[in-house]
Design a protein around this nucleic acid. Structure first.
Lengths: 80, 80
DNA sequence: TAACAAGTGGGTTAAAAAGCCTACAATATT
DNA sequence: AATATTGTAGGCTTTTTAACCCACTTGTTA
């Protein structure tokens, strides 16, 4: 496993993006959870960058938020 | 697990995108594998949509391909 | 103040990815 | 023709998510 810190940063930025979009849409964890097949307590962990979610979960999340999955990755990647 | 087919389509489209970019850059599985921390045989499976990779793997893949992770999701999501 | 909603953290079990390697067939290269 | 490259498939072990559930705490609001 190379570049552990960069991956951790990536997870954190992804979670932040999810958090931003969720708040824009005025959704609580529980409300969002109703719209996608993810447990509300797990969404909390995702936003904190605590779990390395898989592609289908990314898909579910985007669906629940009503955005294209691509949008969840719309953030700057820190170089080096 | 709701919507199994949609998730499978999503995986397939993602893999197709990876495949397209890899070929644009004239990279073989083994060459790409040298630039990211993923085994070459696993990249093959990713492109075929056979594995549900996690976020750090998405990050690695994008890094190896020299693109922003967002680009790997730049495809149409089939409705319904 | 009571009831409710929200965020958080901890735990469980089964399934699957990560990470690794080997082998083989089909191409391409020399 | 011989060699090297490429895609593919299979197996293996360890680690971790997925998918749940429950309990506690802090805010909200009726």
């Amino acid at each position: 496993m190379v570049d552990k810190k960069a991956k951790q940063r990536f997870l954190a930025l992804f979670g932040l993006k999810v958090s931003q979009i969720r708040k824009e849409k005025n959704l609580s964890y529980r409300k969002l959870a109703q719209q996608c097949d993810i447990d509300y307590s797990d969404i909390s962990k995702i936003e904190k960058g605590q779990v390395k979610i898989q592609l289908p979960t990314v898909y579910e999340l985007a669906k629940g938020l009503g955005v294209h999955p691509k949008e969840l990755f719309d953030f700057e990647i820190p170089e080096a």
